[in-house]
């Protein structure tokens, strides 16, 4: 008896409403983008500069007390949030304190950090500082640029690769799906106000990689079936290809999600945001390779004058650029 996530053979009709799928995709993008514009992201110090201090104390975190202790230092906007993790228990009460870049500081002044630590020790002698991080305004500006560039470069490189291996319609379809995934992920981060730092950019790129992985597998089958069934309408070819690969799509997403959810629950609070982004990305990426990438492919259409295939039906070979 085998565990099966989808029946042995399926023939769902995914594309009778392909316009609706594209519409939903577009709507979600607008929604995510709107949230981003209205709320903005909760940028971490990597992107905004400033200092974060991670405190740990055997007694419960008292945000008001901490705030009162730091008040006299006149640090401007201080954000204090308690951190929860199933592994902490009663004895460990963790909080993250964040202050913005102090006005006029080009570089980091150690004095600010030392003053904050002293002030906190005053009210909580048993407090310890698990981590202290400061990023100057200059560096954070550069980090934003590099990060944005990395995402754009990744998408660009992928566009070129798929174009070379498939055809431009496939490449465009895949990239529309990628942009969809990235924007939706940014949207959820802005909606839930989860801290957006450098690691999240790494997660975004991983999502790009994963979503693509999924899309490419579907496209690979589409290419194969386009050759196999020369007369079949594109819509049916897409339906057939997705049904044929459906079992694999679910299996891989399931194993990846199993791994990621273990990490989400047990991996500690330090990387929770990062893992959350990836988990979300895997779900969105799986959905988008069917309902966005393939639907976009249907919308764009594929030229099918492969009457003189030079290389036969063998998979893995490349078509001529003008095919």
């Amino acid at each position: 008896m085998r565990l099966r996530l989808v029946p042995e053979s399926t023939s769902f009709d995914f594309f009778s409403r392909w316009k609706l799928w594209l519409g939903i995709g577009a709507f979600l993008i607008v929604l995510a983008f709107g949230s981003f514009l209205v709320q903005g992201l909760n940028y971490g110090i990597d992107f905004q500069g400033g200092t974060t201090i991670r405190t740990e104390s055997p007694r419960a975190v008292d945000v008001a007390e901490y705030r009162a202790a730091l008040e006299p230092l006149g640090l401007g906007d201080v954000s204090i949030s308690e951190v929860f993790d199933p592994a902490f228990g009663e004895e460990r009460n963790v909080a993250m304190i964040r202050v913005q870049v102090q006005e006029g500081d080009e570089a980091i002044s150690g004095a600010t950090v030392a003053a904050m630590q002293d002030a906190l020790r005053e009210v909580r002698p048993d407090i310890t500082f698990g981590a202290v991080e400061s990023v100057g305004p200059k560096v954070s500006g550069e980090l934003v640029q590099t990060a944005a560039l990395a995402v754009v470069l990744a998408i660009g490189a992928v566009l070129v690769y798929i174009w070379l291996r498939f055809e431009w319609q496939f490449a465009v379809g895949a990239v529309i799906a990628l942009v969809h995934d990235v924007i939706l992920t940014i949207g959820i981060f802005s909606e839930l106000q989860i801290r957006f730092d450098l690691a999240i950019i790494a997660a975004l790129l991983t999502i790009v990689g994963y979503s693509l992985n999924d899309t490419v597998v579907v496209f690979d089958r589409v290419r194969e079936n386009l050759i196999k069934y020369k007369k079949m309408p594109l819509k049916d070819v897409l339906n057939l290809s997705i049904n044929e690969t459906l079992s694999r799509t679910f299996m891989t997403s399931a194993t990846t999600l199993l791994a990621l959810i273990s990490l989400l629950v047990l991996g500690g609070d330090v990387i929770r945001g990062f893992v959350f982004a990836m988990t979300w990305g895997v779900i969105v990426g799986t959905y988008s390779s069917i309902f966005v990438a393939s639907a976009a492919l249907l919308w764009l259409g594929v030229k099918r004058d492969w009457d003189t295939p030079a290389d036969g039906p063998a998979a893995g070979t490349q078509f001529g650029a003008d095919a």
Binding site: A157, V158, Y161, T206, V208, N213, D214, V216, V217, D220
Partner: peptide, 27 residues
């Protein structure tokens, strides 16, 4: 399955390379 495996992994690998080139430290 080979062509799907190769294409799928090359694309992920490309993003890993870009991350390596642009990132620093933990990333």
């Amino acid at each position: 399955a080979l062509s799907a495996i190769v294409d799928a992994n090359v694309t992920t690998f490309i993003t890993a390379v870009i991350l390596f080139a642009m990132g620093s430290g933990p990333v």
